[in-house]
Design a protein around this nucleic acid. Structure first.
Lengths: 342, 342
DNA sequence: TTGTATGCGTTATCAG
DNA sequence: CTGATAACGCATACAA
C-alpha cells in the first residue's frame, strides 16, 4: 500500500508503550482505559497523561479479540437503498439512533440489502462482527430474519411480522390508535366520505393503521371500505389518490398512512384543481419534514421516529449490558399535529 | 449477556476446528479460506467441505489483528443526518457505493457527524478501524478533514475544498460545464431573463455550476447577476425563488443547482399561479427522483451519482490493492435530460 | 491496588 | 505444497 504522506509512518502506540511511558504495567493501563474503579487516583492521572502524550488509541481488533465484544452494532435494513433513503421516517429514525450512539463508544454498521442474496447480511451479523443489531422496515416474508435468532441481541423498529421462536424486543408506536386518532379528527370536522391511502399490506404497521381507521368510522356509522394500499412512496400516494378519486369522486377526506404518500396525493389533487382542505381534507402520518414541504401544512399523526431510533439503541444497550428484565415491547406515544390540511 | 435463544450457545467453530475436521493444519485451512493458489486441489475440496459442514465463518477481529487489515471502509459524511438523508443525491451515491461494495468482502461503516465534536470520527478513521474512507459533502472550513491525511487512503466525492498537503483522490462531475449546459439550453429556447438558485457558496461544486451559468450568459451577452445561494434543500429552494421573484418579477427562466431546490422553487411558483414552463422555464441539476416527483417533469442536468459512488469505491479498492498510478481526478460525464419544465 | 501470565483466532514466516 | 510457530494488541483470572 502506498504511503500517502510525507512523514514516516509512525507505529501506532500500544498499551505496552503507554505502560512503559507511565511506568506501570499493561494491565493497569488497560484498567484506566476501561474506566476500572480499582486504580489509584494518582496512577490514573499519570496514565492518562501518557495516553494523551502518545496519542494512544485502543486497537479495536485486539480489544475485540480479547473480549469477544466488537463495540459495533448493525443497522439492518431489508430494503432497497433508494427506499431507505427516500423515506424521511428512516432519516429521523437513523438520526435518533446515531445521536444516541454518539454518546457511546459503539459505532454503526449500515447493512442495507433487500433480498440478502447469499445471506451476506445474515452471515455478517452471525459472524460475530457486531454485538447486536437493530432491524427496521421488515416485511412479512422476510423469513431470513429468523436466521438471526440466537446470534446476538436484536431490537426491531416496529413489531416484527415474521414468526419468531421467542419474544422479540421491539420499539413501536401504537399504530392502531394513530389511525384512529387521525380518522376521528376528520369525522369531528364534519367529513363523512372518508378514504384511506394505506401502506403495504404486508406490514403490520400499515395494517394496524387501517384497523384504527376502520374502528373510528364504524363507531361513527360511516362506510369504512374506501382503502387503497400503496408502498409508502410519494408517487405511490399520487397513484392511490387517482385510483380513489376514480372510484369515488365525491370523497371529502383522506387518511394517508404516511406523509410522503400524502404529498403525492396533494400533487395529484392540485393537478385536478381540487382544493385542500376546502374540497378534500387530508391527514398524514409521521410528522416528517415532508409534512411542511408544500404550501399547505399537513395535519398529521406525529410519530416520534427520532425517539424510536434512540429508544431502540437504549434497549439494545441494556440488552448488551446484561440488564435484567428489559421490556420487550417499547411503545412510544403518538400525537395529532394539526396544521392546515384538515 | 443473557442468552436469547433456547438452544445452548454453541461455540463458533474456529480454524482449528476446521483443520481437525479436515485432517490438515490450521495454516492450510487459512490458505484455503484466503484462496491461496498453493494448495493441492483435493485438499482444497476436503477443507471446503469441512468449512461448509461446520458452518465456519472467519473471525474478523482475529483476522484483522493478525493482518492489520479490517476489511471495512468508512463513509464519512460531515453533515447533519437529516441533510444526508434528505438529499436524493446521497441516496444514489450511497446506493452505487453499496452495490459496488456488495461484490467485495468489505463492509461499510457509516459515520455521519456534522461537527465531529471530540474528533470522534477522525479518531475512528485514524484509529485503524477502517482500511480506507470515502468522504462526501465536505465544505470549505472542514479543516478537520486534514487530520485524516496520512492515515488511510481517502477518496473524496467531489473535489475537496480544504487545502490538503498532497493531491487528493476524488471523483467528480464537471460542474462548470453542467451549469453551462443547463443555462445554454435556456438561452437557446429563447429565454433572456435568467436567474440561478445556486448551492451553498462554501462548496466548490456549487460555485463551479455558477461559473458555468455565468459563462453561458456572458457568451450570449445577457445579464449574469441574478443569483441567490441556498442550501440544497427544497425549502431553501422555495425561499430563494421568492427572493428572486421579489427582486426581479419579470424572470423567465431559472437554473437551479439541484433538483431538490427546484422542487421547492416549483411549489413557490405554483402558489403564485406562475406556470412552468409557460411563464418561467426551469432547469434542475442531479436528475434525482425528485425530478419526476411533481406534475411537471423537471428538465435537469444528469449527474450520474450512482456511478460516482461506485467509482469512488473502485478508486479506493485500487488504492487498497496497491495498484500503481491510480488517477487522482476521476471525472464522470454530465448530460442534459430534457423533460417538460424547460 | 497492582503486576504476571495466558489466551482470543488469524496471518505470516519459517522450515521441511 | 504443507506444517510448526511466532506475532498481532488487548482483557482478565489469578497472584502478590
Amino acid at each position: 500500500m502506498p504511503t500517502i504522506t510525507g512523514h514516516p509512518e509512525r507505529h501506532a502506540p500500544t498499551l505496552e508503550a503507554v505502560a512503559e511511558a507511565a511506568g506501570v504495567s499493561r494491565a493497569t493501563v488497560s484498567r484506566v482505559v476501561n474506566g476500572s474503579p480499582s486504580v489509584r487516583g494518582e496512577v490514573v492521572e499519570v496514565v492518562q497523561k501518557a495516553i494523551a502524550e502518545l496519542g494512544y488509541v485502543p486497537n479495536r481488533a485486539a480489544r475485540s479479540l480479547a473480549s469477544s465484544r466488537t463495540h459495533s452494532i448493525a443497522l439492518l435494513v431489508p430494503e432497497d437503498v433508494s427506499r431507505f433513503f427516500g423515506d424521511p421516517y428512516f432519516a429521523s429514525f437513523t438520526g435518533g439512533l446515531d445521536r444516541r450512539l454518539a454518546d457511546t463508544e459503539y459505532v454503526l454498521n449500515l447493512v442495507v440489502a433487500r433480498d440478502d442474496p447469499g445471506r451476506k447480511a445474515v452471515r455478517y451479523v452471525r459472524g460475530g462482527n457486531v454485538d447486536g443489531a437493530i432491524v427496521v422496515s421488515h416485511h412479512r416474508g422476510h423469513d431470513f430474519l429468523r436466521q438471526l435468532e440466537g446470534s446476538v441481541p436484536i431490537v426491531y423498529g416496529g413489531r416484527p411480522d415474521v414468526a419468531l421462536s421467542s419474544a422479540p424486543y421491539f420499539v413501536d408506536v401504537d399504530n392502531e390508535s394513530g389511525g384512529y386518532l387521525a380518522t376521528r379528527h376528520l369525522i369531528e370536522s364534519g367529513r363523512t366520505r372518508i378514504a384511506s391511502i394505506a401502506g403495504p399490506d404486508d406490514m403490520s404497521a400499515a395494517l394496524d393503521r387501517v384497523a384504527g381507521f376502520r374502528r373510528a368510522l364504524q363507531e361513527a356509522g360511516l362506510p369504512d371500505d374506501a382503502i387503497v394500499h400503496a408502498n409508502f412512496t410519494a408517487s405511490g400516494g399520487a397513484e392511490a389518490m387517482r385510483t380513489l378519486l376514480a372510484r369515488q369522486p365525491d370523497l371529502d377526506a383522506i387518511f394517508s398512512a404516511s406523509d410522503l404518500m400524502a404529498t403525492g396525493a396533494l400533487t395529484a389533487l392540485a393537478s385536478r384543481g381540487i382544493s385542500v382542505p376546502g374540497d378534500i381534507a387530508i391527514v398524514g402520518y409521521d410528522d416528517s419534514p415532508a409534512a411542511t414541504w408544500g404550501e399547505v401544512g399537513l395535519t398529521t399523526v406525529r410519530q416520534p421516529s427520532e425517539l424510536m431510533g434512540a429508544t431502540a439503541v437504549d434497549v439494545l444497550l441494556q440488552l448488551l449490558g446484561g440488564v435484567a428484565d428489559v421490556p420487550h415491547e417499547n411503545i412510544v406515544p403518538t400525537e395529532l399535529v394539526i396544521r392546515n390540511s384538515a
